[in-house]
């Protein structure tokens, strides 16, 4: 579904991503881990062109999104994204947050958009919050709304950029649970995370990045139990 070929990204003279090649197939859950500053988030943000790759290509459904002729807006409709700091629209209610893009971007009718939004709110356990404003929600609730907002566009792929890093510890579980359900439902997911438990339990594949390079990739059991590279070993020793 997504093919990344020789991806490079530099900010000025700082090369953040160096020659990354990998792909994500449909229904796969990929965890991207690595020390901070390793380029994980930048890599994820290249997948929907929030960052423009310096070199290389990103193919979504065989369409090269780095090609200026590609309509990136259309591609982004198919790719949901969840951010570390939620970025809910603070001047809209929870329900409006969920229905805004389906109404304005997809041109859905209000009725359809609202009923879908309510289904999603039920799924993330926030039915009673539809008229609430984001400022009145806890971090965990905000992130669940953000996930529902992304899902409201019925994307084929979901990107998660450290979705639990800004949460109080007791709220991490409720968000991870929603993500686990989503993974079980067959959603294709790319998750940048520091939650090794989640990576181990839910991911089909782990990508380990360090200093902008893809050092190691493999299935979680193998990666966590017998990492092949010294760098991965060193990283795992520090955090586990």
């Amino acid at each position: 579904m997504i093919k990344v070929k020789n991806l490079h990204k530099s900010f000025g003279n700082n090369e953040v991503l160096k020659d990354i090649t990998t792909d994500i197939s449909k229904g796969e859950v990929v965890s991207i881990i690595g020390p901070s500053g390793s380029g994980k988030s930048t890599f994820l943000r290249c997948l929907n062109l929030l960052e423009k790759p310096t070199k290389g290509s990103v193919l979504v459904h065989n369409q090269n999104i780095t090609d200026p002729k590609t309509n990136i807006m259309k591609i982004r409709e198919q790719i949901g994204m969840v951010f570390q700091h939620f970025y809910l629209f603070p001047h809209m209610t929870v329900l409006e947050n969920l229905t805004y893009a389906p109404l304005k971007v997809k041109g859905e009718s209000k009725q359809v958009a609202q009923s879908k939004a309510r289904d999603l709110l039920a799924k993330v356990g926030l039915t009673d919050k539809e008229t609430a404003f984001p400022s009145s929600l806890s971090g965990g609730q905000k992130q669940r709304v953000a996930i529902a907002r992304a899902l409201a566009m019925e994307p084929e792929l979901m990107l998660f950029d450290e979705p639990t890093s800004a949460l109080d510890p007791e709220m991490v579980k409720e968000v991870l649970d929603v993500m686990k359900d989503l993974a079980k439902s067959g959603m294709t997911m790319a998750v940048v995370t520091h939650e090794m438990g989640f990576a181990k339990e839910v991911a089909d594949r782990v990508l380990f990045l360090d200093h902008g390079m893809l050092i190691e990739e493999g299935n979680p059991e193998q990666f966590f139990d017998q990492p092949k590279t010294e760098r991965a070993k060193g990283f795992l020793e520090k955090i586990l």
Binding site: R76, E77, F83, H91, V105
Partner: peptide, 27 residues
Amino acid sequence: VDKGQTEAAQALGVPYNQMMKDIILPQ
């Protein structure tokens, strides 16, 4: 306005003009 607001709108595929009118300018 937090740059994340722009990114969230972009990630949802919201076109620039609409994003300005509905999301950035009101805030």
